[in-house]
Amino acid sequence: MQRITKFFSDIVREMRKVSWPKRSELIRSTVTVVTTVAFFVAFFAVLDLGISELIRLILE
């Protein structure tokens, strides 16, 4: 039981050392990630559509 208590005590101590991002940094990073993901989704959707049409043209 003492090992478990020490483990959680160590976790709390380490979490106090963490440098958490400010709200503005968090929002900016989130917007960057969402924008990047949306761009790649659109890019690969268009690429997939193009390749599918190309294959359809070849097979007909």
Rank of each mutant, 00 (worst) to 15 (best):
M1E: 12
Q2L: 15
Q2N: 10
R3T: 15
R3V: 07
T5I: 13
K6I: 14
K6Q: 12
F7M: 03
F8D: 02
F8L: 03
S9F: 06
S9T: 09
S9W: 06
D10C: 03
D10A: 08
I11L: 09
I11V: 15
M15P: 11
M15D: 01
M15F: 12
M15G: 10
M15Y: 06
R16W: 05
K17A: 13
V18F: 03
S19Y: 01
P21V: 08
K22G: 13
K22N: 11
R23E: 08
R23A: 11
E25F: 00
L26D: 00
I27G: 02
I27N: 03
S29C: 00
T30S: 11
T30Y: 06
V31M: 05
T32S: 00
T32N: 00
V33G: 00
V33Q: 00
T36E: 01
V37G: 08
F40T: 04
V41N: 03
V41L: 11
F43E: 07
F43Q: 01
F43H: 10
F44K: 09
V46A: 11
D48T: 15
D48S: 15
L49Y: 08
G50I: 05
G50W: 06
G50F: 02
I51A: 11
E53F: 10
L54N: 14
I55M: 07
R56C: 06
R56G: 14
R56H: 15
L57N: 08
I58P: 04
I58T: 12
L59D: 15
L59H: 10
L59Q: 12
E60M: 06
